[in-house]
């Protein structure tokens, strides 16, 4: 409960952010500090329930004295550090990263990315019509969720959520190397032959829609997915006594997707198969 403070109070560190002196608690990342002072930096692989992987490199900023740019999502603030978030150099890298991703991956369901592409004047088409793409087909091998790796930016969040950070099921890993690296279960088998327990905690963290509820996938295919028309209501799962918080996404009085609040002390955004997918009985209406 919120009242029991375990740690000792954190020291405040002073550093310079875009020319202004700011203070951030020890252990905070540059991104934390930016957000605290109202600065927006694009992020893709960063997740509020996961340790930073800093794989996408879209959040890079300049730190005085550093040879290369540094990822704001993982670099911790140090006293006296001079950080600049919006230099030509960092904007250039962000633009190229967006171009590289957009030219190889289907970002059509990645929130915000279209705005960033505009903001950074990225031109993914410049690599020509023959630029290599992932060219993956959606994998529909079970009734609960779909893996559309054509939309995968390889952010590792699903692997981390399935692995030692939360679920500890380790059903997926990155297999292969380089541009051919893909998220896969052992032997790249169908999900149904894998260790997957269908908790859907990978869907919860997927930033691009590569992983989605089958209900969402089907509705998008049918053109009926209408996010603005959906309501989100948080309630408590009925499948055991643990008390997991479920956020029901409802469209036309049908539950179409279930998530969990990431800041919830019980779930931290995680659910099990029953909580995530076991809602159908409520709407077996005739």
């Amino acid at each position: 409960m919120t009242v029991t403070e375990l740690g000792i109070p954190r020291r405040l560190l002073e550093f310079t952010l875009d020319g202004e002196a700011v203070r951030a608690p020890e252990g905070a990342t540059i991104l934390d500090a930016c957000r605290a002072s109202g600065k927006d930096i694009p992020t893709l692989c960063e997740g509020d329930t996961l340790r930073p992987k800093n794989a996408c490199r879209v959040c890079v900023v300049e730190v005085e004295g550093s040879r290369t740019l540094v990822p704001a999502c993982s670099r911790k603030v140090e006293p006296g550090m001079e950080v600049r978030t919006d230099t030509e150099r960092s904007r250039h890298s962000r633009k190229i990263v967006l171009e590289l991703l957009a030219s190889s991956v289907d970002l059509s369901t990645t929130p915000q990315v279209a705005e960033w592409i505009k903001e950074y004047e990225a031109k993914p088409d410049r690599f020509g019509p023959d630029a290599a793409r992932l060219n993956e087909e959606p994998r529909v091998d079970n009734d609960l969720y779909v893996r559309d790796y054509d939309k995968c930016i390889l952010c590792y969040k699903c692997v981390d959520a399935c692995g030692d950070q939360w679920q500890n099921t380790f059903a997926i890993s990155v297999a292969g190397r380089g541009f051919d690296a893909r998220i896969a279960v052992e032997q790249d088998a169908p999900l149904t032959d894998s260790a997957c327990v269908y908790c859907g905690n990978c869907i919860e963290v997927c930033p691009t829609g590569a992983l989605s509820f089958k209900s969402e996938f089907d509705m998008r295919a049918a053109g009926t997915w209408d996010e603005p028309a959906q309501t989100e209501t948080t309630t408590i799962c009925a499948y055991c006594g643990v008390g997991c918080n479920l956020t029901l996404h409802v469209q036309d009085n049908e539950i179409v997707k279930v998530t969990s609040p990431h800041d919830n002390p019980v779930t931290h955004g995680n659910l099990c198969i029953k909580g995530r997918f076991g809602y159908q009985h409520v709407q077996n209406r005739d």
């Binding site: 309630t235 408590i236 006594g241």
Partner: peptide, 22 residues
């Protein structure tokens, strides 16, 4: 759990709000 308002109490004695969603 999905069609009424109220509360439930979990294994750790945590009383939480249940809300009507459908």
């Amino acid at each position: 759990w999905a069609e009424t308002d109220g509360t439930t109490t979990s294994s750790e004695r945590r009383v939480q709000r249940v809300r009507k969603a459908v």
